[in-house]
């Protein structure tokens, strides 16, 4: 356990060294926040209470999702390219002989990264949004706590998805196609592009049940107070269910990949 804590800390530190890149990222998130905030303002001016949100809630949605963008690694930028590169070059064989669990190792590193980016790239854009727009941020500390819990669960799901994508490199020579599809689904089905409650009909029903919903949509709904009491428990259970299922699938895949490496010698 101490090993994984150390891995997480080094993941945090690694990203903390890039101060200029962090500042640049904050700037970009803020710029996009402004652009989307204006379009959402226009959209909610046409249809107040669209998707069950009032305007302040919609704007909160925009700014918090910009704040979580880097943390959730929806546009990539996490560990996956590095892992794919290790698989492609065969360095993964070294990792497999380490007395540490491969999945836990990368999960710890990714959580360390996410923790840094939540602070380094989350706080400033959200503060900028709160200064310039009327947001609906809760005052109750308990709400924030449950939000952070939901973010954490979302991170587990996000990691599990990206881990599966990265492992594809064991079987595919060129992983760029899978990466593109993964990014596509991540942006579209998480609520990053548009809150999932705006998706119409059965299509919307399905998208809201997919694992990507737990990365962004669920934490945001928790923050906006749409899940309380038993509904909150249900939302967290939804996330936990996907996390367990996908992490388990990751372990299975990893086991098959390992046999493949051992049999073929890398």
């Amino acid at each position: 356990m101490r090993l994984y804590a150390a891995v997480a800390v080094s993941g945090f530190r690694r990203y903390a060294t890039y101060r200029m890149a962090t500042a640049a990222g904050v700037f970009t998130n803020t710029v996009f926040g402004f652009i989307l905030a204006y379009t959402f303002t226009a959209l909610w001016a046409e249809r107040p209470r669209l998707g069950g949100y009032d305007q302040a809630q919609a704007l909160t949605f925009v700014w918090v999702s910009q704040a979580l963008l880097a943390t959730a690694a929806l546009l990539g930028g996490g560990f996956e390219t590095e892992l794919q590169e290790r698989i492609r070059t065969g360095d993964i064989a070294i990792d497999l002989y380490r007395p540490a669990d491969l999945q836990l190792w990368w999960l710890s590193a990714d959580l360390g990264r996410a923790a840094f980016q939540l602070l380094g790239r989350g706080v400033v854009p959200l503060a900028a949004g709160a200064l310039c727009f009327q947001l609906d941020l809760p005052a109750a500390p308990l709400r924030w706590l449950s939000f952070l819990l939901a973010v954490f669960m979302g991170l587990l799901v996000s990691f599990a998805l990206r881990y599966l994508v990265a492992l594809c490199a064991f079987w595919l020579l060129d992983g760029s196609g899978v990466n593109v599809i993964s990014m596509l689904l991540g942006v579209f089905c998480s609520g990053m592009l548009l809150p999932l409650t705006l998706f119409p009909g059965v299509f919307g029903e399905i998208v809201r049940m997919l694992p990507w919903a737990s990365v962004l949509q669920v934490p945001l709904d928790v923050l906006l107070g749409r899940h309380t009491g038993w509904s909150l428990a249900g939302a967290l259970a939804f996330q936990a269910g996907w996390a367990v299922a996908l992490l388990g699938l990751g372990r299975l895949t990893q086991a098959r990949a390992t046999t493949k490496v051992v049999v073929q010698g890398g």
Binding site: F27, T28, F32
Partner: peptide, 15 residues
């Protein structure tokens, strides 16, 4: 001038 700050240009291009 700011080798690490490539994301800033993203704000103007993609943004």
């Amino acid at each position: 001038w700011a080798a690490e700050a490539s994301e800033v240009s993203n704000s103007f291009t993609y943004g």
